[in-house]
Design a protein around this nucleic acid. Structure first.
Lengths: 195, 195, 195, 195
DNA sequence: GACTAAGCGAGACGGTACGTCGCGTCTTAAA
DNA sequence: TTTAAGACGCGACGTACCGTCTCGCTTAGTC
């Protein structure tokens, strides 16, 4: 399969996504704009969501990587901030909004998304948590999945449901809210016994 | 419009939502099953999403209410657990999955959802936080929106993206993770200075 | 269903048939030329062959009728000549050529053709033969189906296979060749014993 | 082109024709089943009909030949019966049904068919008529083309249009119906003057 | 025995049309 | 007036084959 063809498809897809989101994306449109036959597109992508996902994955490749910093809090902020930025100021936000319903409707697609994005993010969380624990920044015994959900849940909640802005300080505010639990400064037990 | 007609429409809609989610919901189907003409349905609901939203709102009416309990932690757990339960074990989960993309695509719809559901939940959060602060359960100066996002973000993240289960203990785990921050047991400053 | 719509469809179909035969007939083309949506066409006609058949039937309505004449030979000539003329000098010839393969491929279509055209023609043959026998023009005991096949077989053979022309005198030549058998002037037995 | 390749192509074609007629024949299918590349097939056959015709011709090679018998009637019966049999009980019937429309659509193809099959049959008719006339079995001055049309027209009419069966006795019935005219036992003039 | 030229397999590709789905609009007649 | 009934235009879907093309890999035939 010709590499050039793939690139033409993805470029056209990206353009159409910018212009009208996943909703405005049609295989016919991509075919028209890219000059690639509809058949050829279907040869490679099962559906228009598959196409959109491909673009999304292309954009996310580097988002997951988090540089090693001095302290865990900064690393977490950088990590979350990566998501906030890409979701808030690129087309990825709109694409995510448009795709999310299809993750549930098309199991294959959902699986792809979870494997490519959620799982990677999860692995990164695990790595950061381990490093943080080793450093003594974090308390031992953390439930990494919960860490993950708490860090990114709020971000996606805003993007998908509440409509609240993904602003600059968001990542920091989220991390700071979770930090006390992460460090164990105020354990659940302590809290429960505090009244 | 006759009340009975509305009820027949909504019943049929609910049935179809159960059977095939938002994706399997078609105005034609509702018309066929309810015996109400398509025209009549369109007179009342701008689109099929509008219909689905109507059903969703109907189901949510009572979900937001949280009984007054002895301590704030229990109240929060009850509050979050309400969402976990309704999203995890009724059709509301599937309906939400199916609707969420349309909230971004159809502004009117998104606005309706935010006003009817997000805003109510937000108000409830505000009420709980105020009461908790008054009681001394919570520290003063909390950012209610962040509280809201932290409590519900993880739940929706699981439902919509990670596919992780909405299990029984989820609400409690989330609340316990946020509590330290809520009580101020481990302030961000404390954390930052802890290394 | 609006009568006007049907007429627009059939007119466009007829035009396209004239221009390119059944091969050049496409539902999309009919839709484009008639201004009737493709969907609507499919609502009424199962396939493009069904469409072509409809046009063909429309043209044939009056072909089968044969006026009552003085003698049977003239009636038969008129009958066969009707077919020769319509197949040789209208689009019906091309349409028949284009459809015939589909009669075998699509049973429904073949059945329709046989019921609407073959069976009617057969009935007419039967009528003519009976009248002829009653008159004394024809011998009794004729196998009407064989009469039918002998009168029209050669015409269609030329149209579909040999490519020989459907000229003016054809009907007469065919009838005259069959007449001896029809009248019994030279019975098969006589022939067999003649050498 | 290697002879073996041709054979593999034709075998696969024959199989596919058996399974689904001309309609079920696709170049892609032939390529797949024969293991011969599509390109190679197109190098040799202009279209799928060309392919089907090739198979058809291969089968017909020996059908035209008629053994010399004692009397002309028997020869004609044998001749017609050859066609009835091959069309009625081998794939040739289905192939003919499938190809006939293409004879009109593709001039090249139609010409090939007429030259290879119709013309040969025509020549054979001419030969039989000449011999029959010489023998005194047939009257002089016969229009051989009409003889041809009358003998085979009914057979193809049944195959292609009326759907009537190509049964055992058909050839004999057809020949017996034409014999009076062939022998001149009842001349057209006689018939016309008979009332 | 190496060297070219042709024939071939593999399969990507542009293209046309297919027949289907569901949308939302519109018209008509009855209640 | 409101409704049921349903025809309609429309846009897109995903599929099937078509016939063309390019690319290496054989495989002879030629020097």
């Amino acid at each position: 399969m010709k590499e050039e063809t793939v690139q033409r498809i993805l470029s056209a897809t990206r353009e159409l996504l910018v212009e009208g989101g996943v909703h405005g994306l049609t295989v016919e449109g991509v075919s028209g704009r890219s000059g690639v036959a509809k058949t050829t597109i279907y040869r490679r992508y099962r559906s228009k969501d598959d196409l959109a996902l491909a673009v999304l994955l292309q954009m996310v490749q580097d988002v997951v990587a988090v540089p090693e910093l001095d302290d865990t809090r900064s690393e977490l902020v950088a990590f979350v901030h990566g998501a906030v930025r890409v979701l808030g100021s690129t087309i990825m936000g709109r694409v995510m909004q448009g795709l999310v319903s299809d993750f549930a409707a098309d199991p294959e697609l959902g699986r792809a998304f979870r494997e490519q994005i959620v799982a990677r993010r999860m692995a990164e969380v695990r790595r950061l948590v381990e490093r943080g624990t080793a450093r003594g920044d974090l308390r031992p015994g953390l439930d990494e999945e919960m860490v993950h959900d708490l860090l990114f849940g709020p971000v996606y909640y805003r993007l998908l449901l509440s409509g609240a802005p993904l602003d600059e300080g968001l990542a920091e505010r989220v991390v700071d809210a979770v930090m006390p639990w992460l460090t164990g400064a105020g354990s659940a037990e302590a809290v429960r016994s505090s009244h």
